[in-house]
Design a protein around this nucleic acid. Structure first.
Length: 834
RNA sequence: GCCGGAAUGGUGGAAUUGGUAGACGCAGCGGACUCAAAAUCCGCCGGGUUCACGCCCUUGAGGGUUCAAGUCCCUCUUCCGGUACCA
């Protein structure tokens, strides 16, 4: 059967997809005889249909997967569904259906879309996090964590999204708004479950060093900042006339002698007892109420006017014993440090403003090197390091030494200690929503909170419920779910009706993929040891903190609970964060109506073209604008390959890529061979080492241009036809990871016996890249003045001699004196003249 | 404010270790084929100057290092991302 002149993608793509499916071509099992490569993209939320962002993400991953297979790796390339979550509930309410029904229908449709794209997944490992077979293990992890005190329950002021009717983790609050629906987040006192992620703060921070080189540096920086480690001291200020003291955290112990007041957050637990019975108690309470009711966004804004009120209470300076007034301030955060700060107005800008406003003394204890500050003349705090003054025996010390010495003194006297503070908070995982994994505990009136017994897992999420109109969870109103038996006393108990944050499911799915069908345990130990860690992870940078931090934490936590192998400290060795697909310069979004639907594009151009364009348009990390002319260009290239093969079919034979040539080959054969081997080298390096798919494709285009150039001339000879055939085989092999369907089809038409997906990546040969003569650039004073052809391997003297003989060069040397010559062998001669 | 990143033709982007700036595309222009168009194929394509060979300028701006700078250093501008009363 002859190839048709025009490329008609659809039948061909369907044909190969069916074949891959029936062969289970991309199913893999552990095989100690081959090196493994675990490649994973972030799994999608089953929102309904895939969008261009998915297509880009999964096309990048598929190129890597197919490439590594050809390189001889045993590749694990899985896919699954991040299937719990709010949109399912909201859609169910809107469309009067059930979240489960909606979710599974979406999964079915989206699976068919992914298959139409021709991605090489091991479909036998597909997971959906909303299935009990998946989340039951999560419940087991929860119980294990409970035993190890890595998960706990506490009442605290929480981020509450009034629109989603649920609390949010700190990581899910963006600019004071809900990460999902953009509603302004409120504060609410609630008892919630927390993962003790702060127990891993130091390791999460330290292990970022292990990821250097493999992860984008900005992601490492973001995580570093999010964890926010600061070293300092916790210092006790005894309360006047009481046995208790107020603890403060400071990074500037060197300024201790400059403390003129203390500021407490209005929420500080001591406040109540400090203000009780004061004559202005009512006014103070009014201030506290006003501050607490403030919008979180407003309260944390930098332009917020610093407000405060004196409590009437005093504490004592831990060293001098001086009386220090205690104030309340609207800018002090209850949840950071101890919720109380020692105020040093001379050396902290906030304290400075506060002191000026309320007429509190300003005491200078740090001077800049060689200068002396006058408090009355200052218009801003001096916040840098300097030399201590007015600080008794510490005066004269530079700040860092003073800091250490003062902390040592406090420690010796039991008044304080060196300590470390983190910005990172424990992870609140309770969600007051229905469509999530149940938290496996019950509450008994007699025995209190009791974990469900492991043998009673899973705690199934009941499916026979009706979602509430207003978005509230139906679980508390579902007696068959709520009514439970206390595992301790056998009496009646009430089941926990909060569900887990969906980020819990996505924190360990990479490990489940290694043994996705295992029924008696979450993981198969041999499979874990064989596959983990993930060699390459690909996904959007929007998960730089949220998901990636949680997954790193889970890895360490599951390791310590004995689920993951010891020594497996990090889940993802290398991370590629792909940019967004834009349209008209802005992010594609339904509400803006600037969407390019992948289905429509596949319909029009075929999956190969869509994949190719996504990879050619820009390097993967960068955002790119979808353009009609761009995808047309990609389509034109696909057609050009097809067209060229169909025209040359009589000339071509099924030789392998990078075939050997006879020694007596003509110059054109050698030139084409050089182009072929150069392309093989470049494409391999671009994909394997640089993630530069756009330049890899450009190199294949260049090879095709070279074939086109030599085609007429070389068709006439046996040698020439062999060279053309080899070059064409290279084009197909190199292009296969990008446009697998078309390449397979042509490969088969050419008469190759095995399929391309079993073909090995071609090996370029150094001797093919060497030439008899090289073009050497000649510069005079660094400016390009001429080019000379010189025999390869010429020595420096010969190159300079040839350069000086060049007429164009000679013109610029006329009447000048040669000061120096610089030679880069095989490349460049620079003649420096005066 | 602090911490990252970026800025290259009309346009998306190349230039990997300091060594020919603008690969490969897109758009545009010219030509072939065609009754014509589409498709395809071939050629041109940073700016200035020149009949031309050339010469000069050019990688956000200004300085510096170097035989040689898009690339390294300093200062600045603009844009993007993260974070922010974190004590």
């Amino acid at each position: 059967m002859a190839l048709q002149y025009r490329y008609a993608p659809h039948g061909i793509e369907e044909k190969w997809q069916k074949q891959w499916e029936s062969k289970q071509a991309f199913h893999c099992t552990e095989d100690a005889s081959r090196p493994k490569y675990y490649l994973m993209e972030m799994f999608p939320y089953p929102s309904g249909r895939i969008h261009m962002g998915h297509v880009r993400n999964y096309s990048i991953g598929d190129v890597m997967a197919r490439f590594r297979r050809m390189q001889g790796y045993n590749v694990l390339h899985p896919i699954g569904w991040d299937a719990f979550g709010l949109p399912a509930e909201n859609a169910a309410i809107k469309n009067n259906t059930h979240p489960a029904k909606w979710t599974y229908a979406n999964i079915d449709y989206m699976r068919s879309q992914l298959k139409r794209m021709g991605y090489s997944y091991d479909w036998q490992r597909e997971v959906a996090t909303c299935r009990p077979e998946y989340y039951r293990w999560e419940q087991e992890f929860f119980l294990k964590c409970l035993k190890k005190n890595l998960v706990y329950r506490k009442k605290a002021s929480q981020n509450w999204c009034p629109c989603c009717h649920t609390v949010l983790a700190n990581e899910q609050v963006i600019d004071g708004k809900c990460w999902r629906c953009d509603s302004v987040v409120e504060q609410k006192d609630l008892t919630q479950w927390f993962f003790r992620i702060t127990a891993y703060a130091d390791e999460l921070l330290a292990d970022l060093a292990k990821l250097e080189g493999g992860w984008p540096s900005r992601v490492l920086t973001m995580q570093n900042n999010w964890i926010g480690r600061s070293t300092g001291a916790e210092i006790s200020f005894p309360l006047e006339g009481r046995y208790e003291s107020v603890k403060v955290f400071t990074t500037r112990a060197d300024t201790l002698y400059g403390v003129t007041f203390l500021t407490l957050a209005p929420e500080h637990p001591l406040v109540e007892s400090l203000i009780k019975g004061r004559e202005n108690e009512a006014a103070i309470r009014e201030f506290i109420e006003r501050t607490r009711n403030m919008d979180r966004l407003d309260r944390q804004s930098e332009t917020l006017e610093k407000e405060g009120v004196f409590t009437g209470a005093y504490c004592l300076h831990p060293i001098t014993g001086e009386r220090v007034p205690i104030w309340l301030g609207n800018f002090v955060l209850a949840e950071y440090g101890t919720g109380a700060v020692m105020a040093v107005p001379a050396h902290d800008q906030r304290d400075f403003e506060f002191a000026r406003k309320f007429g509190i003394p300003i005491k200078v204890v740090i001077n800049p090197e060689g200068a002396s500050l006058d408090p009355a003349a200052m218009d801003a705090a001096f916040t840098e390091s300097g030399v201590l003054v007015d600080s008794r025996e510490f005066s004269g010390m530079p700040s860092p030494a003073g800091r250490e010495a003062i902390i040592r003194k406090l420690e010796a006297e039991g008044k304080g200690k060196a300590t470390v503070n983190y910005r990172l908070r424990d992870w609140n995982i309770s969600r007051q929503r229905y469509w999530g994994a149940p938290i496996p505990v019950v509450y008994c009136e007699k025995c209190g909170m009791q974990p469900v017994k492991e043998e009673d897992l899973p705690v199934l999420l009941p499916l026979d419920v009706k979602t509430c109109e207003d978005g509230r969870s139906p679980l508390p109103d579902t007696p068959s779910f709520v009514q439970a038996v206390c595992p301790c006393c056998g009496g009646p108990a009430r089941r926990e009706t909060d569900t887990m944050d969906t980020f819990v499911e996505s924190s360990w799915y990479f490990a489940r993929y290694t043994s996705a069908r295992k029924e008696d345990a979450p993981f198969d130990e041999d499979a874990l040891r064989y596959w983990l860690p993930v060699d390459q992870y690909v996904g959007g940078v929007e998960h730089a903190i949220l998901h990636l931090l949680y997954a790193r934490f889970f890895t360490k936590m599951l390791r310590d609970c004995g689920y993951l192998p010891k020594g497996l400290d990090e889940p993802f060795k290398r991370l590629l964060t792909q940019g967004m697909v834009l349209l008209g310069g802005s992010k594609m979004s339904k509400s803006k109506g600037n969407i390019v639907d992948p289905d429509a594009m596949v319909e029009k151009y075929g999956a190969d073209t869509v994949r190719l364009f996504c990879l050619f348009a820009a390097p993967p990390e960068r955002d790119f604008d979808w353009t009609d002319s761009g995808i047309e260009g990609a389509y034109r290239f696909v057609n050009r390959v097809w067209h060229m093969f169909s025209e040359m079919q009589d000339v071509l034979s099924p030789v392998s890529a990078c075939s050997d040539m006879s020694a007596s080959s003509s110059a054109s054969v050698r030139a084409l061979r050089l182009a072929e081997h150069a392309a093989v080298k470049k494409v391999g390096e671009d994909i394997a080492d640089r993630n530069q798919f756009n330049t890899a494709i450009a190199a294949i285009m260049e090879l095709l241009n070279a074939i086109s150039l030599y085609r007429a001339e070389l068709s006439g000879s046996e040698d020439g036809r062999r060279a053309l055939s080899s070059a064409m085989s290279s084009v197909l092999t190199l292009l296969y990871p990008f446009t697998p369907h078309m390449c397979e089809e042509i490969w088969q038409e050419l008469g190759h016996e095995k399929e391309l997906d079993t073909e090995v990546w071609p090996q370029w040969k150094p001797e093919a890249l060497s030439t008899d003569t090289v073009t050497v650039v000649v510069q005079v004073n660094g400016k390009l003045r001429g080019r000379i052809d010189a025999p390869a391997g010429s020595d420096k003297e010969a190159l300079v001699k040839a350069a000086l003989a060049d007429s164009a060069v000679a013109r610029h040397l006329d009447g000048k004196t040669i000061v120096k010559t610089v030679v880069v062998p095989e490349k460049l001669v620079n003649i420096v003249v005066r």
